[in-house]
């Protein structure tokens, strides 16, 4: 449905505001992966990420009349998505899962073929430990690490979606990585 060449966001937003569901379909096609992976990074569950990202699109459609056409859709949409994800995490925290149930399966490891089996196992263990540590971080710390390290967003893009200055992004990243490092004591210390 979507081709980047024809993607004129401002025009599509105006059409969506006039009730054109086909235009909204084009917007969804354009942003669905970004939305899904943002949610997956935060909630660590395929089913929940799928449900929450789709629900965010439904809510965004209902409120699209409030979006100013000059504003970027994803920046606005991301606020809806993160609220839904954080609410989901709070609900889940009330029904706390055992540590062993954290869904490590949602992270794939990019295989380094130059490694021998022993090195590979060691690396796999380390990655599992890193993902568990990320998953146990505070919501805001986890979010910024997901946006930077798993969504590969630039500082400028992160600043846009989190609606804060680039300097704040950098200091928040430092705080988040510091928290991550302390959870991984022994793995990375010299």
């Amino acid at each position: 449905m979507d081709t980047n060449k024809d993607f004129d966001e401002g025009r599509l937003i105006r059409r969506c505001q006039q009730g054109d569901s086909h235009a909204y379909g084009v917007m969804v096609e354009h942003y669905k992966e970004r939305a899904y992976y943002s949610a997956l990074g935060l909630v660590s569950s395929h089913e929940a990420a799928l449900d929450l990202s789709q629900e965010a699109f439904v809510r965004a459609y209902r409120s699209i009349s409030k979006l100013e056409p000059e504003r970027k859709f994803f920046t606005w949409f991301y606020q809806i998505l993160r609220h839904l994800c954080f609410n989901h995490l709070r609900d889940r925290a009330r029904h706390a899962r055992p540590f062993s149930e954290i869904n490590v399966e949602e992270v794939q490891q990019i295989v380094d073929t130059s490694q021998n089996t022993e090195e590979h196992i060691e690396q796999a263990e380390m990655k599992t430990a890193v993902w568990r540590a990320i998953d146990s971080l505070k919501e805001n710390d986890k979010e910024i690490i997901i946006l930077k390290d798993f969504q590969n967003m630039s500082y400028k893009e992160i600043a846009e979606v989190l609606e804060c200055p680039i300097g704040t992004v950098m200091s928040r990243l430092y705080t988040a990585r510091q928290a991550l490092k302390s959870k991984l004591e022994g793995y990375f210390d010299e």
Partner: peptide
């Protein structure tokens, strides 16, 4: 510097699984 660099090297080799 070395600690954060190593940490980044590990996260660079991780990705969220495609559905």
């Amino acid at each position: 510097w070395n600690t954060y660099h190593k940490l980044k090297e590990v996260t660079n080799t991780m990705a969220l699984k495609s559905p």
